[in-house]
Amino acid sequence: MRKSLIDTDILSETRKGKNPKINAKSITYRAIWQQYTISVITVSEIIKGWRKINRNDRIQEFLADLSEVEILHLDQSCAEISGLIQADLEKAGQPIGLADVLIASIAIENNLILVTGNTKHYKNIQTLGYPLLIDNWRE
C-alpha cells in the first residue's frame, strides 16, 4: 500500500467509523503508515462543516486529533499546478470546486495517491493528462 493523501470525504467517514470497507482500509493503512496524511485544505473543509452547524465542540475535538496527522501545505509548486488544472478544466467545460483542485495539486506535487470517494471530479483531472492517482476506499 502506497502512501496516500486522504481527501476530506474519506477522512470524515473514517472518523465516523460506520462504513466497514473504509474502516478495514483505514486500519490497514494506519498499520503501515502509523498516521494519515491530509492537506491543509481538508483541515479548512472539516472546520467549515462543523462551524456551519454550530458544533464548536467537534471543531475542538478535530483540532486536538491533528497532532496525530501529517498535514501537507499548499506551496508555490502546488499553486502553479492547481492554476493549470483549474484553467484546463474550465476550458474543457468541466470546472470543479477550488478545494478539490487544490487537494489534487497537493497529491500530484507530493506523488501521493489521492484516497477519495469523489472520483467523478478527480477523474476529470486525470482525463486532462495530469498524473493524479486515485483510490476509492468505498469500493
Rank of each mutant, 00 (worst) to 15 (best):
A99S: 14
L98Q: 09
L102Y: 04
D100F: 10
S44G: 15
Q86W: 09
I27G: 00
G17P: 05
G117P: 08
I41T: 09
I103K: 08
T37E: 04
P95E: 00
G93E: 05
A104K: 03
T127I: 12
G117W: 06
L98R: 08
V101N: 05
E45A: 09
I6W: 02
R2N: 14
I125T: 06
I96D: 01
R138D: 02
I46W: 04
R51I: 05
T28Q: 15
D57Y: 07
R2H: 13
Y29G: 02
Y130Q: 03
K120M: 00
L128C: 04
W137M: 05
K91P: 00
D100I: 06
Q35H: 13
Q35D: 08
E68C: 01
S44K: 08
I71S: 03
M1F: 12
V40P: 01
S12W: 12
Y29N: 02
G93R: 07
I85H: 07
K120I: 10
R58F: 10
P95S: 07
N23D: 12
A64M: 11
K3V: 01
L98W: 06
K91T: 10
Q35P: 04
I134Q: 05
A24E: 12
N56E: 15
N23M: 11
R30L: 15
T42K: 07
S67V: 14
Y122V: 03
A99T: 13
D57T: 01
E90K: 15
L11E: 00
E70I: 09
L112Y: 13
I6G: 04
K16P: 09
K18S: 10
K3R: 12
I46C: 02
R30E: 02
Q86H: 14
L98N: 11
R138W: 11
L72P: 00
A64T: 13
S77Q: 13
D88F: 01
I113E: 06
V69A: 00
